[in-house]
Design a protein around this nucleic acid. Structure first.
Ligand code: FES
Ligand code: FES
Lengths: 156, 156
DNA sequence: TCAAATCAGGACCGCAATCGTCCTGTTTCG
DNA sequence: CGAAACAGGACGATTGCGGTCCTGATTTGA
């Protein structure tokens, strides 16, 4: 069913929540309260997000996490990459050391990368701002936005 | 890591193999031999593909499967849908009856659909013909493509 | 008519990756 | 020096997935 991991889901939820007050320092437990998610999991998510460079952390007594980057500069691809590793649809795309069992006679060998590129491009075109700001202008192009086809310069 | 299931992978492999001789009737066991994949799994894949309307089946003694549609009319989205169910990145997109646990206060509620649309659009733009074309340069690197992996240890 | 070939559909089990939790440092502030 | 808060990893339960097999249904051909 081609669904992304729950971690990435949580990550987007948490991040979009943080995008409301950029720069504000929030602790992990408070973040869990705001989102309604279990605290340990949210803490883990925050850690991963920090390691991925998406948010900044501050240790110590008055510490916490804060979103420093602009919401429209945070792409969904980055979030997924930070929480679930690089986007690699199949085993034969770069990023994994294990190839398909039939690499020798596979008819499409390197052509998976094109699909991978297309998906990554689509994911790249959606930013955190898109997910949080669509509140007011819900009537944008929902049918097939520029993201879909415009993300096809894979072979340029 | 946002990878699609192995079933979908196999499906594409099998289909792209069938795209070479469209209309030819091939049995499941022969298809397994051609692709090098285990027979039971390949049979299962063929069944799912048939149910999805991507290939035609013929029962009886001289039966088998055949690809009736044009390769450029078969999209990757269809293949994934046939084998893994509809493309639904998260639980809150249409297609599943189960929502996130925090749907009530989730800040992005319906906005996941945009991401879903973007991905589906990207997948829709790649057809079976795209994967099978450029067959000539697919035979060049028979060793181990391993695109730009940092310092690939000699494992040959 | 009968038997063989082949697909259809589902049941079943084992493995694996994920999800979620917790514990032990490390850092900063009061 | 102690408390607050993050960092990092270990650990177990669970769920879904991958893979196999078995029993029908259908068609062909002898
Ligand atoms: S080598 Fe991976 S799909 Fe063919
Ligand atoms: S992510 Fe599903 S309801 Fe918010």
């Amino acid at each position: 069913m081609f669904k992304l991991s729950r971690m990435a889901d949580y990550g987007v939820v948490v991040l979009s929540r943080m995008a409301r007050q950029p720069g504000e320092l929030v602790t992990a437990v408070e973040m869990a309260q705001r989102t309604g998610l279990p605290q340990p999991t949210v803490a883990k998510t925050l850690k991963l997000l920090t390691r991925g460079g998406l948010i900044a952390s501050h240790r110590g007594v008055q510490g916490g996490y804060s979103l420093e980057r602009a919401p429209e500069q945070v792409t969904v691809t980055e979030i997924i990459t930070a929480l679930d590793g690089p986007v690699a649809l199949t085993a034969c795309v770069e990023g994994s050391d294990d190839n398909c069992a039939v690499e020798s006679l596979c008819p499409i060998r390197g052509h998976w990368e094109r699909v991978n590129e297309a998906v990554k491009g689509a994911l790249d075109a959606v930013t955190l701002a898109d997910l949080t700001s669509a509140q007011e202008d819900a009537a944008i192009n929902f049918g097939r936005p520029r993201a879909a086809k415009a993300a096809a310069p894979a072979d340029a």
